[in-house]
């Protein structure tokens, strides 16, 4: 489990989007599974975008959005199979969404919506999952459930989790590796490293001019 942190505007979202192939790097290149990114590799990566405004009236229910995670796997022209729906239901269960399955997404709270987007990313059964501030709208309890779930998937299935967090406690408790960026990698190491706090202070308080 990798945690990414950095001040607002430091390029965290940009980094994730570059890994996904949504943005072309101006220099250098991105290798995923040892190769440049293609449609095939995109299918093996789950992505949960940073919380943004969706239309409140969009005609989709929770289960519709979660099922989108299966679309690329199933492929063009094909309908989702029973097996897909089993996976979707299991994921909704894991993210405590089963009761909300038929709720229009416009009627969800921010935190509930965030869980929908996580479920969508998990429904893909990816090998890597990229999460952009996944717990920014979750309550304490849900945050812990959420992180525990990721940890479990990480330990059981070897799911690689790369997540942007603003919560230092989460980074320390739940990641194996922390990367702090501010336009460039400023610090990289383990959560136990003695110089972590000092590095954070430097990056967030003494350096920033934002």
């Amino acid at each position: 489990m990798v945690g990414i942190c950095g001040p607002n505007g430091s390029g965290k979202t940009t980094l994730l989007k570059t890994i996904l192939g949504l943005i072309k790097p101006t220099e250098g290149k991105v290798l995923v599974f040892g190769k440049p990114i293609t449609k095939d590799t995109q299918m093996r990566i789950g992505y949960m975008p940073q919380l943004k405004g969706y239309s409140k009236e969009f005609p989709a229910k929770v289960k519709d959005v979660v099922s989108m995670g299966r679309y690329p796997i199933r492929g063009l022209f094909k309908r989702l199979t029973r097996k897909d729906w089993e996976i979707i239901e299991r994921v909704m269960n894991d993210t405590q969404l089963s009761e909300l399955a038929d709720r229009p997404i416009g009627q969800l709270s921010g935190g509930q919506f965030q869980r929908v987007m996580l479920a969508q990313a998990l429904a893909k059964q990816p090998e890597i999952i990229l999460l952009d501030e996944p717990t920014s709208a979750l309550d304490f309890r849900m945050t812990i459930k959420f992180m525990d779930l990721l940890k479990e998937l990480n330990e059981k299935y070897g799911l690689t989790v790369i997540a942007v967090h603003h919560d230092l406690q989460l980074l320390k408790d739940y990641t194996d590796r922390i990367i702090c960026i501010d336009k460039a990698v400023e610090w990289e190491g383990n959560p136990q490293d003695a110089d972590l706090d000092e590095a954070l202070l430097r990056i967030f308080f003494y350096k920033t001019t934002h």
């Binding site: 989007k17 996904l20 192939g21 949504l22 449609k39 095939d40 995109q42 299918m43 990566i45 992505y47 975008p49 969706y54 969009f58 989709a60 519709d64 959005v65 989108m68 995670g69 679309y71 690329p72 199933r74 063009l76 022209f77 309908r79 989702l80 969508q120 893909k124």
Partner: peptide
């Protein structure tokens, strides 16, 4: 009818659809 789910996903979130590997 054949591409309904893909068009649906693109309408919902184009960026997510691209990141998922849809054409």
């Amino acid at each position: 009818f054949l591409l309904k789910k893909e068009f649906f996903m693109i309408s919902f979130d184009k960026e997510l659809a691209i990141a998922s590997g849809l054409p």
